[in-house]
Amino acid sequence: MIRVEGVSKGFVLHNQGGARLAVLRDAALAVRPGECVALVGPSGAGKSTLLRMVQGNYGIDGGRIVVGGVDLSTASPREVLRLRRETLGWVSQFLRVIPRVPALDVVAEPLRALGVPEEEARARAAALLGRLNLPRPLWDLSPTTFSGGEQQRVNIARGFVHPYPALLLDEPTASLDPVNRAVVLDLIREAKARGAAILGIFHDEGARAAVCDREVDVGRFVP
């Protein structure tokens, strides 16, 4: 479902004397449907960079990344957007939303973009927020005012509200209490059970052991 082949990546910092930073070389991995793979390696090894490249957020300098049949190294923005809408879910550590949109609508939005009617989208979003124990009074408020753990649960709900065939998780349990951490691990297990291919970064070793089938050491790809 997710294939990374011979990928290289660097950054040129034009405004800092044209400094060149090489981050990855010859990166390769594959994630099959129903499989959860963890990216591991020391801080700064390029885990985040690789995850962002798979998401289409960072450009690819060399090699190819194919997700659900779409080659991200050559795909047009329109194709990447469609991939994200239909196939590739993403749970980020950061929440970027329009300040006044209520949490419930933030979570329902990926479904609305897929053409799911408003009622149904909100019902599915509500069910998920309920499961993640987000206090009901918060549902109608903008998540921009939420605590870190609350924002993270909104992000998680956004990533799981649609049964994406592929999922990218960036520290999905980082700021969660044990109860909600267990809920997220259940969500990941359920996604695997329905055949989702999952690639993630988990600093939480317990979580990694609980849901991940394999680990890929990104340190191997450091140039």
Binding site: F11, L13, H14, N15, G56, N57, Y58, G59, P77
Partner: peptide
Amino acid sequence: EGLTDRVLDDPRHPYTQLLVS
């Protein structure tokens, strides 16, 4: 030019980098 978050998060052109930073 390109996908919005790609251009803003991984800007290539010196001017875009300046703009974003």
